[in-house]
């Protein structure tokens, strides 16, 4: 869906559902995932239909993912960190995961 205008400087590595991806320092998690070609970020708790970012500015909550074990984080607002473990979120997320 998206590619990087400038592919240099992608130096941070993180994992999405166990798969390593590289990101640029300063990327948001959502930006890094989109650049890596991730198409589904979560499924809804009501009908489990797939969702991906809609607004990228913190208002739609369709980019919710689990980051380092904490679910329902807004991927569009959080900056990537080296070693971060991101998981796409299925339905009602596990309480306390």
């Amino acid at each position: 869906m998206f590619k990087r205008l400038d592919d240099t400087g992608a130096t941070v590595s993180l994992k999405v559902d166990g798969k390593p991806i590289r990101a640029r320092a300063g990327d948001t998690v959502a930006g890094a995932m989109l650049a890596a070609g991730v198409e589904h970020f979560r499924t809804t708790p009501v009908t489990e239909s797939p969702r991906a970012p809609y607004c990228l500015m913190g208002v739609c909550f369709d980019c919710l993912v689990a980051i380092d074990g904490v679910g329902s984080r807004q991927a569009c607002l959080i900056e990537v960190r080296e070693g971060m473990a991101v998981e796409t979120q299925l339905g009602k997320r596990e309480a306390g995961r």
Binding site: G69, V70, G71, S72, A95, G96, R97
Partner: peptide, 8 residues
Amino acid sequence: FPVMRQAT
């Protein structure tokens, strides 16, 4: 309820 700690 420790399971609730990360509930939103």
